[in-house]
């Protein structure tokens, strides 16, 4: 069972969305300790937004995109993020791009990476039982934590719940923001899926891969996920049909007991 202890929650509006934290802690003064740990974490998130927001004309990424800054003049994270984007583009056969629609926008990597960084910061501060969620993408540390998968056909409802330790869960879809994922090969919005959820270990890579697999569509996307043992996938097609990789252990929405001990636990290869 879970180590008993209060779960302290915090929601932060940053990067145009909500980041939420659930941190399990024990002992007197836990909330003070968590608050102190969250201070630098949320400051870092706001800093990442300042550097990478494509909605801010003066962000490093905007100025670099316009040619006003050289890469060496940008925050060092810019070069690293662009390198990671190229790696995902290569491993997905070009189904991920840091230039969706032709304009420099590495958000497909940055948001998941920011969540993963926040989780790592909390872990380094000694809080080894937590979840961090950013715009619907989740990184868990410790566990078991129960992660609901939003139903794209019923806003606010969940398709089901998965449980496990040290999971990254990323859902790409049209429910919240419309058809916003561009097929890099055609430049048109990808419409073959309502949503695609990928489960992995680390959210930056998992989130970027989910964007790529969503663009691939149901057949290629699921085949691609099935070929990667460290990835599981659940897809919802426009007619509501659900398809998943064989290892996507998954429970229906909580009806009776939602005790994590009663949920199938997702087994992934160890954290690399």
């Amino acid at each position: 069972m879970n180590p008993a202890g209060p779960v302290i929650r915090h929601a932060e509006h940053v990067m145009g969305t909500v980041f939420s934290f659930a941190v399990r802690s024990t002992g007197a003064g836990a909330e003070v300790g968590v608050a102190e740990a969250l201070g630098p974490v949320v400051r870092r998130l706001h800093r990442i937004d300042e550097v990478f927001s494509t909605y801010r004309p003066q962000s490093d990424i905007s100025r670099f995109g316009r040619g006003e800054l050289a890469l060496a003049q940008c925050d060092p994270a810019v070069a690293e993020v662009l390198e990671r984007c190229r790696e995902v583009a290569a491993e997905t056969g070009g189904w991920f791009t840091e230039r969706p629609g032709g304009r420099l926008d590495p958000s497909g990597w940055v948001k998941g990476w920011a969540v993963e960084e926040a989780s790592e910061q909390l872990r380094a501060a000694g809080f080894v039982q937590h979840t961090v969620t950013g715009g619907g993408d989740v990184q868990t540390c410790g566990g078991p934590w129960r992660i609901g998968i939003a139903d794209p056909l019923r806003p606010g409802a969940v398709l089901g719940v998965l449980a496990g330790h040290d999971l990254a869960v990323a859902t790409s879809g049209t429910a919240e923001r419309g058809a916003h994922i561009v097929d890099p090969h055609t430049g048109r919005p990808a419409t073959g899926l309502l949503s695609l959820t990928l489960v992995g270990r680390r959210l930056a890579l998992t989130d970027a891969r989910a964007t790529a697999a969503f663009a691939m569509g149901p057949d290629l996307g699921l085949a691609w996920a099935a070929g990667h043992p460290e990835v599981e996938a659940l897809a919802v097609l426009p007619d509501g049909t659900r398809r998943r990789t064989p290892g996507f252990a998954f429970a229906p929405p909580p009806a009776g007991s939602a005790d994590p001990a009663h949920l199938p636990s997702l087994a992934l290869p160890g954290r690399s």
Binding site: T133, G136, G148, A150, G156
Partner: peptide, 14 residues
Amino acid sequence: AQIDAVSGATYTSD
């Protein structure tokens, strides 16, 4: 409220 986090969630459900 026995779900710890939701992937793909709306703001309202949170």
